[in-house]
Design a protein around this nucleic acid. Sequence first.
DNA 1: TCTTGTTAGATTGTCGACAATCTGATTGTC
DNA 2: GACAATCAGATTGTCGACAATCTAACAAGA
Lengths: 230, 230
Amino acid sequence: MVKTEFSPIADTTRRAEIVALLRRAILTGQLEPGQKLNELRISEQMRVSRAPLREAMRELVQEGILTSIPYAGTFVIDVTAKDIDDAYSLNKVLDEFAIEQTWPQRDRRFFDELDRRHEAVKQATRDLDTTRQIESALQLHGLIYEWADNSVLLETWQRLISRLQMYFALHQQARNEPVPAEDVHETYVRLLKGTDMRAAQRHAREHINLDFEQLLSYARSLEQRPSKGA
Amino acid sequence: MVKTEFSPIADTTRRAEIVALLRRAILTGQLEPGQKLNELRISEQMRVSRAPLREAMRELVQEGILTSIPYAGTFVIDVTAKDIDDAYSLNKVLDEFAIEQTWPQRDRRFFDELDRRHEAVKQATRDLDTTRQIESALQLHGLIYEWADNSVLLETWQRLISRLQMYFALHQQARNEPVPAEDVHETYVRLLKGTDMRAAQRHAREHINLDFEQLLSYARSLEQRPSKGA
DNA sequence: TCTTGTTAGATTGTCGACAATCTGATTGTC
DNA sequence: GACAATCAGATTGTCGACAATCTAACAAGA
């Protein structure tokens, strides 16, 4: 008897699709921070009623990328330098923990998946597809969380990553430069395959440091010149 | 001119009240793990329509204490020993981080608040009010998170605490014993007031350890004899 | 001129009804 | 009797309309 593995079938509710659409629009920067989401207009554009749209928005509010004020509206969260700094410092701690938990569980499948995701980043870089580059880089980084076998940790990471992805997308969009050509993940992958856990943890911390420094300076520059809002 | 400070007025939507009602029912164990929430029945009991109820349930799903299966229903999450273990080990890491961040920011107001919350726990203990004892103990423990001045960390803690409160309530409910009379938080409070940060971190880790061990053995005993479901 | 009261328009919150889907029992067939 | 097809009931998902609330413009009065 062949042992076939079936993945869960897709959610077939409008609500789930709306969540996916909105999330993507926010995380890619199509919807700007602070922007108000008009329920009537969006529901007409999507050809759905307001009920599933509102339920979807509730989910994204709890997910932390929308914020809601009763009778006033629902808005894309604002990005402050402090938010980025907070997320960043927590991320350092979680990374260390995730690596520690994952370390003894690394096996052939782990290394294969590591290579696969690393390759995806390199491909996106070659294609000059910044959005996919950000997504795939976070996917690569998320492997240690998936492998740590701790559902609460994984959830926490995914909430964090929503914001980070948004920050990175805005950053990329703003500076509008060609993506870095060199492969900044080479060392990270190599150390995760090695035998020195401390070294891997240290590198993760410093490596992330680098990316965040750019983000922070960008966010600070935004706050120098506060926008008038949408 | 007197400078009066006003706190934001309460949310006046039905949705917000429903969220509060449901959350309380779940976290105090009135609604059992795995139990299905019938939308029609609950909406009739609360005298509201299903729309705000469903939106409230979406929020609690994202909060991690409900789980939803399309066209099947929304259920209170199941509590497995692994979940508790996962939450527990993450909590240790976060505690350490929270103490580290809070340490340099401790001031008079911090110590006063610490005493106030400690007193609340002792009062609930004297009153033999187990529900309030759990709540106030978690409040005491949460002070280091509120003081760490990291919004992402605080959010993470609050998500974690929802589950922990549920676990503790179920545990208390199950063993049905009088609450411990001795004051297990005395040392914790004293160390947070002291000068040895490492000692405080170490104690937090071990102190939590104790509580969790009880929880874990309880959860494991449940899994030995799986319930038939509601 | 500044403040306060009013009003119209737009938007969010809530409701009741209908459509889509699931579950379990029943029926019919081999 | 075992099994598949069908059907009724219950429940969730979605819709369109109405109620409650907010915002901004305007008018009235000190």
